[in-house]
Amino acid sequence: MRCYLCALEGKTTEAVAICIVCGMGVCMDHLVRDEIEVWEGGYPFPSKKLKRRLPRILCKPCYAVYHEG
């Protein structure tokens, strides 16, 4: 698979990941590796934030939209 965003620029770059939101194949230059907090538990027990965070990969357009909203 090739990077979609590079293809739009007329380049052919191998994709190294897929955006978890839109499914686009992206190269290292067009991806953002984000980490989100994970909580477990809840009523009738207090929630606990886990030490490890959940990694996920987004393309830059999806990352921008996510953080704008």
Partner: peptide, 22 residues
């Protein structure tokens, strides 16, 4: 509920403790 578990009742707290959940 996510903060304390919202027992708001000693009977609930004791019952959860008695079964080693608290």
């Amino acid at each position: 509920g996510r903060v304390s578990g919202a027992h708001i009742n000693p009977a609930v707290t004791i019952a959860l403790w008695a079964t080693r959940r608290f």
